[in-house]
Design a binder for these strands. Sequence first.
RNA 1: CGGGGCGUAGUAUAGUGGUAGUAUAUAUGCUUUGGGAGCAUAAGGUCCGAGUUCGAUUCUCGGCGCCCCGACCA
Length: 434
Amino acid sequence: MRQSRLFTKTRREAPADEVSKNAILLTRAGFINKEMAGVYSYLPLGWRVIQNLKRVIAEEMEKLGSREILMSTLQNKGVWEKTDRWDDERVDVWFKSKLKNDTEIGFGWSHEEPIAEMMKSHVKSYNDLPVSVHQFQNKLRNEVRAKSGIMRCREFIMKDMYFFAETEAENLSFYESAIAAYSKVFDRVGLGNITYVTSASGGMFTDKFSHEFQTLCDAGEDYIYVNTERRLALNEEVWNEKTVSELGLKESDFEKKSAVEVGNIFNFGTKKSEDLGLIIQNQSGEKQSVHLSSYGIGVSRLMGTIVEVLSDEKGMIWPKEVAPFRVHLIFLGHDGVLKELADKIYNAMLSENIEVLYDDRDLRAGEKFADADLIGIPTRVVIGGKTVESKMLEVKDRGSDDVLMMTLEHLIEKLNSSTSFDKVQDKSLGTRSY
RNA sequence: CGGGGCGUAGUAUAGUGGUAGUAUAUAUGCUUUGGGAGCAUAAGGUCCGAGUUCGAUUCUCGGCGCCCCGACCA
């Protein structure tokens, strides 16, 4: 994309109504636009990041055999009454409205009930199971207090996945696979080494339990107890002497740290299916309730978390899998011949399917560099009078001060190989706590 | 939902009971071109409503909106 055709503008100053690092940087760089408190729109650069996050997540979910769907935003009151979750006293984040004929409807803050209800039409027999579906959708929650930029919004983008199984064993086995898949997702988006699978409630031997994926981050709302060495983490809810000793550790082996909940997974057992009447016939012809588990990732919150964790005083530093573009090609000067060369290099990159943002604007070098640092595309390539005679490209990673000189062919080869210039090697997530 | 703070140009800010200023962004021209250049010109603003007052952007009240702390967050 030619930057001259990008309608968004960068800002030199932080918006007065934002305090959080993620909102300040994303707004200054033109990734997002605030519509009202807790409600943001995604502009071209920001939307590309969201799309990349969705792609990474979708790839890992599809490897689990899940199918992508899209449930409706408007929801049926009756479905939620079956599980006693329609009442505002029970669920305080409902947005509700009425049809012209006064029928009450809800705006989806979660989709467990509607999806289980929908599955009743399609799942009748053990032959229809197991099945997993996922979707990317805007969730609407009437939060009393939105805060922290895009970290806690009234409207936000979430991936939610639901797994339906005949047996508990199948359900638990999928739960395990999902943890591995989630870990892969957080590795790929650059948060692997600071994201912990965190025990949240229940235990392996209860019917219902959950885990959170918590990314260590000062801007986080949650506190978790972390044992870095064994990569164990416990939520405050399960932080007690009994749990700790079951792990063969002492309370002093853990450190209390603030973290952002980027993912959350639940095993519901058969409770929800019983309430909603999601019943199948098993092999011996008996009727039984379906085992259900659900798996969420806050996609927009994940974007905010990456900004919070990976940035410096100049701007954002995107990991290459989620960056809005892989390369930022910057043309300096106003020389026509040089410009033609830059155009040629731009087209060559396009034909190699390299995602490139081409700064072809007629601006001074300082402003272009400042914008490039702010936007944070992983690799910067400069075409200017200083380098043109050497027939080499000037290449620099956003996270480094080292400038490399290389040919276009060499650059393309580097970009296509898995060994890019990223110096930080993400560590894998540890195994789960218990 | 409790407590606190704040609404002045697209953005960021100053100031005043009596003609609202600066920076930046925008438009035009000239100069400039490897880390947010310079000069000139132009356009652009007091959140809404009521009250006090000869006169309110300023004071009072109400509304709307925004931020922070806490509570809340299946």
